[in-house]
């Protein structure tokens, strides 16, 4: 097991965000996480990345993540692409990518090649400042930056948020391609179909708890997901 989460609890000043979530990911798997606003997707990501304190256990590659500090997590091979992307707006795409890899290893041309092959658009615009990109292009750059660290696991938080439908399609093609290359992926989404199609397995989160999980194609067939989102 590459990532194993057991009975995870996260609270913010008394407000419960996660209430006993368990989840695991095998190497090479693409795992989805769907749930409406406030279900706890982002909190789970933040807990894995060590940005918020949590109770329970998170084991990554046999290491106890909760015992580590936030800045120690990326070098283990977890790359988190946060909601809203958070690029360095005044740096070029190329420099943003470079920064993504340089904290973990010496970046070489093959790292850039992998990203540019995945998103040819980034190659065309590599000297452009990140802040001047469209939302979809920024998302590509953010995913690219995360890939530069050669992550064991790529964590994507709502990559379709605020992006035009045409570009969403492009981003999901790239995610599928990464999956096919054997990249381990944890994907949080509100757009349920996109998530079910790209992920092998999916967990459904509702008010801080996993209400159901299973192979994505099976989940697509039953009504659980709709219930989780809309209550009835």
């Amino acid at each position: 097991m590459l990532l194993e989460i057991n009975d995870l609890k996260v609270t913010y000043g008394g407000a419960i965000a996660l209430n006993g979530v368990s989840l695991n990911i095998e190497r090479g798997e693409a795992v989805g996480l769907v749930g409406s606003n406030g279900a706890g997707k982002t909190s789970l990501f933040k807990a894995i990345s060590g940005i918020v304190p949590a109770e329970g256990s998170i084991t990554f590659d046999n290491k106890d993540l909760l015992a580590l500090k936030a800045h120690e997590v990326p070098s283990l091979g977890l790359a988190h692409v946060p909601e809203g992307r958070r690029l360095f707006p005044r740096l070029s795409i190329e420099d943003n990518l470079l920064l993504g890899g340089s904290s973990t290893h010496v970046v070489d041309q093959s790292d850039f090649d992998r990203v540019y092959k995945l998103f040819p658009k980034l190659l065309e615009r590599k000297t452009q400042l990140a802040g001047t990109l469209s939302g979809g292009e920024q998302q590509m750059a953010a995913i690219g930056r995360a890939l530069m660290s050669r992550p064991e696991i790529l964590m994507l938080d709502e990559p379709s948020l605020g992006i035009a439908p045409v570009l969403v399609e492009g981003i999901y093609k790239a995610i599928a391609q990464l999956r096919d290359e054997g990249q381990t992926i944890l994907l949080a989404e509100q757009n349920v179909m996109e998530c079910l199609e790209v992920c092998n397995r999916t967990y459904v989160l509702q008010t801080g708890q996993v209400v159901t999980s299973g192979p994505s194609d099976e989940l697509a067939e039953n009504d659980e997901i709709r219930k989780a989102f809309l209550g009835i």
């Binding site: 409406s36 439908p165 989404e189 509100q190 757009n191 349920v192 179909m193 996109e194 997901i225 709709r226 989102f229 809309l230 209550g231 009835i232």
Partner: peptide, 20 residues
Amino acid sequence: TPEEIASNPQVLAAYLGERF
């Protein structure tokens, strides 16, 4: 009513995505 809302395609689209 809650039943009308929960089965409404527009609501489903807003909450679970257009394609769902």
